[in-house]
Nucleic acid binder design. Structure first.
Lengths: 204, 204
DNA sequence: ATAGGAAAGTGCGTGCCACGCATCTTTGCG
DNA sequence: CGCAAAGATGCGTGGCACGCACTTTCCTAT
């Protein structure tokens, strides 16, 4: 990768991170595109070369995460059962790295509160869902490779991808919106949700 | 219901219908909020008393449809198995009424082409997904009633609702984006998708 | 029946935003 | 070293979301 592309990725990451940080800290409406661009050290006009709007910038980290899930699924051993491979590909993307867990930041509750507010903004919800949905194509392709099905003709791989997205959405919502953000591990919720979906959701 | 509420519903329906018709005919960017308001016989300012933007107006019919699914599910006999009730609640909402099938309009292919274009607009995709997701609360409540589970504490009813949405999305996409909009019935795709999801999506 | 008040519709003004276009700067390569 | 392509920037414009104040319409309680 040349200098060109790596700088582009760095700018994109800086913009996305700045967008999230500022929105969590100040609230969605109180953050201007100008602020985000400034925080990322770039011109306001350049912001729109990367994202079509504030909401897309905020959701782009979720998009990247879902695309990494598709990649991760493609790299699981072929002998592994499908849903086990899915779980192994999904969970790591939602477990905070050591750089987060090492710092038990005192403002964690403020951060979570800001996150909740951010996720309650309609435009953010919409763009987040769209990000996940657009990544489903890549996930479906990986599922197609693994199961020998064709995403263009069979619904099966697309259904699996959409079901995975659904499980992720429900688990995330249960974790953040419901009061789970304090006591439980989100990874456990994810595993639970994915197992239930893969079991066909029979009435209990 | 008083005159007040029925007028409100009529205005909302008129705005939503006008938005869809104009966007399908002319393309998303070529339609101004002013045009939609004019076609609905209402002031431009009033448009924003009903919808936060063009995209939400376009997606509102899908929102209504998903909410009717929740209602319909609540009215299925309690003895009916859950997933059978779901299928019976979902399918009728996607089968065109006799007022559509009676008229084999000559411009049907143009309409479908416009529809495809409309569904390809990012803002429309995002708002459509958000509409379905917000209706999931109602669907989850109905599932909770039927199965004796609590949407506030258990993920199960929310997972069912999200899985239903996922199946609807995949079947719709397969029908419109894929070439199924001409030969097949969308109802068959929906039944197939819902059955696969309820069977746990085992690899074929 | 009617008066009072709530709810909906409207007009205006404002600030933000998405994006086309032209220009300048940086990068990769011969 | 110099050139062509890609990216960053500045400017201008049309549109949009929404707060606010005012008018109109409808419901309700006396």
């Amino acid at each position: 990768m040349g200098l060109r592309e790596s700088k582009k990725l760095a700018t994109r990451a800086a913009l996305s991170w700045a967008a999230i940080r500022l929105v969590v800290e100040r609230g969605y409406d109180a953050v201007l595109v100008e602020d985000i661009a400034g925080a990322a050290g770039v011109s306001p006009r350049t912001f729109n070369n990367y994202f079509s709007g504030k909401a897309e910038a905020v959701a782009s980290r979720h998009l990247d995460r879902c695309l990494r899930i598709a990649d991760g699924l493609g790299e699981r051993p072929a002998a592994e059962p499908l849903w086990e491979a899915i779980i192994q590909a999904v969970v790591p993307e939602f477990t905070p790295g050591p750089e987060v867990t090492a710092h038990p930041r005192p403002d964690r509750e403020a951060w979570v509160a800001g996150l909740r507010l951010m996720l309650a903004v309609p435009a953010v919800q919409a763009e987040t869902l769209r990000a996940a949905a657009s990544a489903e194509t890549a996930v479906a392709a990986a599922v197609g490779d693994r199961t020998g099905t064709n995403p263009a003709t069979d619904m099966y791989p697309k259904l699996v991808a959409a079901a995975v997205t659904a499980a992720i959405n429900v688990a995330s919502q249960h974790y953040y919106v419901g009061g789970g953000a304090d006591r439980g591990q989100i990874g456990d919720l994810l595993v639970d949700a994915l197992r239930q979906v893969s079991a066909g959701l029979p009435p209990p």
